[in-house]
Computed example of a mutant assay.
Amino acid sequence: MNQTNTMKELPENERPYEKCVRKGAGSLSDVELLAVLLRTGTRGESALDLARRILYDSGEDGILGIHRFSIERLMRMKGIGKVKAIQISCISELAKRLSKASHQEALCFSDPRTIANYYMEDLRHEKQELMKLLMLNSKAKLIGETNISKGTVNASVITPRELFIEALEKNAVSIVIMHNHPSGDPTPSREDMLTTKRILDAGALIGIELLDHIIIGNNCYISFREEGIL
């Protein structure tokens, strides 16, 4: 038996490469797309079988699980070495960058929807709460962004002092804060409300306006400004 099973060993009508040529990449299933990128399987297992196991037999929810795999976790799976683990990790990063690039032209800091769309793929797959600080100049143009805190699954701890040190160093005139809810539900918690109030009040004292606090869920968001909280 060969050490690995390749696509060429499959019947021609089952080969994703040929199907892609005939019908286009959009005709391929998630498993077939991943198999094309993996190219080879492992001992006694085709690339299609390996792709199916990665997507559906790992306790994840199909293709979205790719965003949650670290290289180390991938390498613990049977049949996945360092090269394949890096390939899959790069697929995840490429998907995030493509999503951001597609929303970049529409990004407007007076429109919370465009901000949420732009950062959605960065944040919605995080397993812990991650808070971002977006710093703007007098023309409401982005002059810097940074991750302020990464908390537990249930809470993100942030102090106004830490946040405004970053903003003052960039000479920011206004800021937007944003964080994710790993549960997928962007409904603000009591802690979210209190944190926003502290940052709003501190900004007013030093002359840096808090334009919005956006909470990212799973393909959804809540804007404090849209909700009338700010």
Rank of each mutant, 00 (worst) to 15 (best):
P188V: 02
H213G: 01
A204D: 13
G217F: 14
L205G: 00
K197Y: 00
I215T: 05
R190T: 03
I206Q: 05
K197L: 07
M193L: 13
L194S: 06
G207M: 12
P188Y: 04
D192S: 11
L205S: 07
S189H: 06
G203S: 06
T195M: 13
I216W: 09
L194N: 05
G217A: 14
G207V: 09
I206D: 04
I199Q: 02
L210W: 06
D201F: 03
L210G: 09
I206R: 04
R198S: 09
G203C: 06
D201I: 06
L205M: 09
L200C: 08
I199D: 01
L194Y: 07
G217P: 12
R190Y: 01
E191H: 12
G217R: 13
T195A: 12
L210A: 10
A204K: 15
I199S: 00
A204T: 11
L210I: 04
I199T: 05
D212L: 12
L194G: 00
G217N: 13
G217L: 14
A202H: 10
I199G: 01
I214H: 06
L194W: 02
P188C: 03
K197I: 02
D212T: 08
P188R: 01
I208D: 03
I208N: 02
I215F: 04
A202G: 00
E191A: 10
G207A: 10
M193Y: 08
L200R: 15
L210E: 09
R198T: 01
S189E: 02
L200N: 12
D192E: 04
E191T: 07
R190E: 10
A202C: 07
I214M: 11
L205V: 10
I215E: 00
I216G: 12
D192N: 14
D201G: 00
L211R: 15
D201T: 06
L194R: 09
K197G: 00
P188F: 07
D201W: 00
G207F: 10
D192I: 03
K197W: 02
L194Q: 11
L210V: 10
I199V: 15
M193I: 13
R190G: 00
H213I: 05
P188S: 03
A202I: 01
G207S: 12
D212S: 11
L205Q: 14
T195D: 06
I208C: 03
K197D: 05
D201S: 06
S189Q: 03
E191R: 08
I208L: 04
P188H: 02
D201N: 09
G203L: 07
